Simulated scan of single mutants.
Amino acid sequence: MNTRELNFAYKVRHALNESAEKLPQSTAEKLASARKMALSRQKKTSGLRVFVPQRLFAGEAGRFVNAPLAWLGRMGVMVPVVALFALMASIYQVEQRHISDTAEMDVAVLADELPLSAYLDSGFNAFLASRDH
């Protein structure tokens, strides 16, 4: 908070304290009983204490480096990344093979001197369809 905000907060607190003194007695008693009831419902603090050997903050890299099974945490990230890379490489290989086969067929068809009626033949279309699969 900057100085201006603190001054405003002090002024508000002062105004509330002044107006609290002007409240009727019945209202002050109702507020006091409501406060007592709220305090009675407050959770009790436990007497147990826990010893924490070192402070750990979110995002602190030191907790994985010093742990006995630190490699397991790193593998949990690396395995999916390597699997994704292998999948993408295999998809690339399959697509390159398909492109190569299609290009080879196109070259064979274009280099051969077939009459136009051969392209209209249903057997030729069946041949092309079988080469795609």
Rank of each mutant, 00 (worst) to 15 (best):
17 N>H: 12
88 M>P: 01
47 G>S: 14
24 P>Y: 07
123 G>W: 10
89 A>R: 01
47 G>K: 10
15 A>S: 01
117 S>L: 13
81 V>A: 00
122 S>K: 13
5 E>Y: 03
101 D>Q: 15
20 A>S: 03
45 T>S: 15
102 T>H: 15
54 Q>N: 03
42 Q>A: 03
14 H>S: 06
117 S>T: 15
28 A>T: 11
79 V>Q: 00
68 P>N: 02
81 V>L: 01
78 M>W: 11
113 E>P: 10
44 K>C: 11
101 D>K: 15
114 L>A: 07
27 T>P: 06
15 A>M: 04
125 N>R: 13
24 P>C: 00
50 V>K: 04
63 R>P: 00
58 A>V: 15
12 V>G: 00
75 M>D: 07
113 E>R: 13
118 A>S: 14
65 V>T: 09
104 E>F: 12
42 Q>G: 02
78 M>R: 04
63 R>W: 13
23 L>K: 09
3 T>Y: 15
104 E>Y: 11
4 R>E: 14
108 A>F: 13
18 E>S: 06
67 A>Q: 02
25 Q>S: 10
32 A>E: 08
7 N>S: 09
126 A>H: 10
32 A>F: 10
120 L>V: 12
17 N>D: 09
120 L>R: 14
12 V>N: 01
80 P>S: 01
115 P>I: 11
80 P>Y: 04
84 L>F: 13
69 L>D: 09
18 E>K: 04
66 N>E: 02
127 F>R: 04
25 Q>H: 08
81 V>M: 02
118 A>I: 15
72 L>P: 00
60 E>S: 03
85 F>S: 03
42 Q>W: 06
75 M>L: 06
114 L>F: 15
85 F>G: 01
14 H>G: 07
64 F>T: 00
126 A>C: 07
114 L>C: 10
92 Y>V: 00
50 V>I: 14
25 Q>N: 09
119 Y>F: 15
7 N>D: 07
100 S>K: 07
30 K>N: 04
112 D>K: 06
21 E>N: 02
50 V>D: 05
107 V>C: 04
21 E>H: 10
76 G>N: 07
74 R>D: 04
123 G>N: 13
31 L>F: 10
30 K>D: 07
87 L>Q: 02
118 A>Q: 14
74 R>P: 00
73 G>P: 05
24 P>A: 05
77 V>F: 12
128 L>Y: 11
132 D>Q: 07
104 E>T: 11
97 R>Y: 12
104 E>D: 05
17 N>Q: 09
79 V>T: 03
43 K>Q: 09
127 F>T: 08
5 E>Q: 11
55 R>V: 02
100 S>R: 14
51 F>C: 00
